[in-house]
Design a protein around this nucleic acid. Structure first.
Length: 432
DNA sequence: AAAGCAAACAACCGCAAAAAA
DNA sequence: GTTTTTTGCGGTTGTTTGCTT
């Protein structure tokens, strides 16, 4: 489509917004909602294009914006998320309630990038700068190998290695290509990754998720450490919801995942006998957080921000008595992929915030991951990153090394799960 | 006090995808 | 099924602010 046609049709104001313009836009949207953005300026009496109005609202006028300087925790989280998501600012912003993608992007470009470089970390790869250079060379070798292969069939094209998108991918790529080995590493993360991927693809296709790959996860030879009391019957999502089958899967998944999160097992490849040892100073998850998650299912959230079971909660505002699967368009068989229809459903609920995104409310259970992540990120980024490590053949894989000390392993382990929780949160947010 | 510079912030632009006609 | 319109995203540029010389 290209450029907004309205910009050509008439002389529209550009540049900074005046307080009067803000006021007009604010009043209009508060009263009528934005509806179709292209009609907003006309209806609100503004000499701006709809696009400009939208941007102003999203980045500045929206009442739920936090504003102010970013906290250290937020900065750390952004760095961590950027390592996983890259420049997907909107997805990163989902994980930081009250912050906009534009704000985060600006922070990254003006400050965070520089800070990372000062610490010797390449902001693009999130690895020590020397290591990033080494791996680039390694990738070049891999590409050379790929180009040697016959390239005249579509099959070959499909087999071309995709750029690694996660630490695990990078690890496997380096292991398999640089070491000339062919090992897949069915770690707990591997199956967790499959699980989250199933959810992601099911949300995009509006089909029930395929957990077949994930379910093997639960058959792995590992025993959750019992140092943490975990109610085996705990449910995290309402089992009486419409998609009870899927909810049941999720609940069993959560029961399995959470103890292992807390115990920080996991990056041990499964072909080596899993060693489950708890570092004496193993701190990651507070019982407070566990309890909050365990109680989540029992919580019905009222519109005054308190929970029906009497426990304190963050300032959540939702409809009366809804557990979070129930009152959201999160039912696979009936999944409604039409955005406009979804919007109309949302609008039809009296008093429902217009831009209701339940992924934001999902932050509460998923703050388990976030809280660990903050803790972890703080440790990692406040300290000098470890110098480059080398595998036996000299390939540098420092930031994803399996050979780091136990404590670092446990910290990374928490991060790994945090990452997948973030993905879950992001995925579910697509339904809003 | 003024000039120069850098950082921070706000807004625009172009593109692509999704939705509607 | 095609075309048009709308929305959202990420890159980039412009403006303001604050600090240093």
């Amino acid at each position: 489509m290209g450029r907004h046609s309205c910009c050509y049709k008439q002389k529209l104001r550009k540049g900074l917004w005046s307080p009067e313009e803000d006021e007009k836009l604010m009043q209009h949207i508060t009263k009528y909602g934005h509806g179709c953005w292209s009609s907003v300026p006309k209806l609100a009496g503004l000499h701006r294009c709809g696009k400009s109005c939208r941007l102003r609202w999203i980045n500045y006028l929206r009442p739920d914006l936090k504003r102010g300087t970013f906290s250290q925790e937020e900065e750390n989280l952004i760095v961590e998320l950027h390592a996983v998501l890259g420049n997907r600012w909107s997805q990163i912003a989902v994980q930081l309630p009250g912050r906009t993608d534009n704000e985060i992007k600006n922070l990254w470009n003006s400050s965070l990038k520089k800070k990372l470089r000062q610490k010797g970390i390449d902001p693009n790869t999130h690895k020590p700068i020397s290591e990033a250079e080494n791996e680039e060379n390694c990738s070049a070798t891999i590409n050379e190998k790929a180009s040697e292969a016959p390239s005249d069939s579509k099959f070959v094209e499909a087999e071309k290695p995709k750029p690694p998108s996660s630490a695990m991918d990078r690890y496997l790529l380096i292991e398999n290509n640089c070491n000339n080995t062919k090992t897949s590493q069915p770690t707990h993360e591997f199956f967790l990754n499959k699980f989250v991927t199933s959810l992601e693809s099911s949300t995009s296709s509006c089909k029930p998720p395929d957990f077949s790959g994930y379910l093997n996860f639960q058959q792995l030879n590992y025993e959750p450490n019992t140092g943490l009391s975990m109610n085996p019957n705990a449910t995290f999502f309402n089992p009486n919801s419409k998609s009870s089958g899927m909810i049941s899967e999720l609940n069993s998944t959560m029961t399995t995942i959470l103890p292992s999160m807390s115990n920080s097992i996991l990056t041990t490849p499964i072909h080596i006998k899993p060693s489950i040892s708890i570092p004496s100073n193993n701190p990651p998850m507070s019982s407070y957080n566990i309890n909050r998650v365990q109680n989540w299912d029992a919580c019905t959230i009222s519109n005054n921000g308190s929970t029906s079971n009497g426990s304190s909660s963050s300032s959540i505002e939702m409809q009366n008595n809804c557990s979070f699967f129930e009152n959201n368009p999160f039912s696979w068989p009936q999944a409604n992929c039409g955005k406009r229809e979804r919007e109309s459903q949302i609008h039809s609920v009296e008093g429902q915030p217009e831009d209701f995104k339940w992924s934001e409310y999902l932050q509460t259970p998923f703050s388990v991951g976030t809280s660990i992540q903050n803790q972890t990120a703080q440790d990692i980024y406040n300290e000098t990153r470890p110098e480059t490590h080398f595998t036996t053949d000299g390939v540098s894989i420092s930031s994803i090394s399996w050979h780091q000390n136990q404590q670092q392993q446990s910290l990374q382990a928490s991060d790994v799960y945090s990452k997948h929780f973030q993905r879950l949160s992001t995925t579910f947010g697509q339904f809003s």
